[in-house]
Write a protein that binds this DNA or RNA. Structure first.
Lengths: 144, 144
DNA sequence: GATGAAACAAAGCCGGA
DNA sequence: TCCGGCTTTGTTTCATC
């Protein structure tokens, strides 16, 4: 993880479809050298994938919310692996504190949200905040 | 946004570096036809970008937290556009409810987290939950 | 560098208003 | 007939050895 690796990560985070040729120009290395570095970053688990970003509002999921789940014991949401596969659930974290988990969800309409909350309420007490604005739809990871 | 468009979105969300050739094979269309559809999805704002995914733990940011900010009036965090540029801040939402905003943050160490909380406390009352596990590091958006 | 594959641009084909 | 979307072809650029 030297300076060039970070330069490569920076470029691929901004545009994952860059050709090795273009990438090699930007980081001032030969194309095979860049390809080899990218391969190493992949194999070492630093680069975990390349994903197209989709605008949730434009694909029918304009209603978003942060949901904190307060659950305990055998019905805890974290014991049901299916929840992570629900299409409404975009992120799912186990956290410390009062709630046991935090979900980011995206649904087409408020009625759909109401239905989702009902489904979540089977596991514990959900407390939700509607997202009014996403101030940071994307940003690259920087060197620590 | 027909069935083929969704098939394209599905493939590009899973692997943004797919060539148009390979993509055209998977969706059973000619390469130029696929390229044209992708161009339209980009121009219409459905596809907002292609981003390499980086493992935060492996690049020196193993400590993550959800921070709910409770602030009000002229010192509210949402009035300072610089906050979104802090490298620790990975996501930033304006939300309804008690807190005015929710942040996802990632830092190298607990002392760095302590320092970040101090910086955030200038804007209002931060209340944070440490992330114990990310149960859903990535998943594609599905048709609503 | 050299080879095979992929991207891009231009022109023609086909089905539905 | 017109129009939008698809395929085919030829040329340039790219990936890989």
């Amino acid at each position: 993880m030297d300076r060039v690796d970070w330069h490569i990560l920076e470029e691929l985070q901004a545009d994952a479809r860059l050709s090795f040729n273009e990438l090699s120009r930007r980081v001032r290395l030969s194309p095979p050298a860049v390809a080899e570095r990218v391969r190493r970053l992949q194999d070492s688990g630093v680069l975990t994938g390349y994903h197209a970003a989709v605008d949730l509002e434009r694909v029918g999921r304009p209603v978003r919310a942060v949901v904190v789940m307060d659950c305990y014991g055998p019905t805890c949401l974290l014991r049901d692996p299916d929840v992570a596969t629900w299409p409404e659930v975009r992120q799912l974290y186990r956290v410390t504190g009062q709630g046991c988990s935090v979900l980011m969800v995206a649904v087409p309409t408020m009625p759909a949200f109401e239905e989702l909350i009902d489904r979540l309420a089977r596991y514990g007490r959900p407390s939700s905040s509607m997202v009014l604005a996403d101030l940071l739809p994307w940003k690259p990871v920087e060197p620590a």
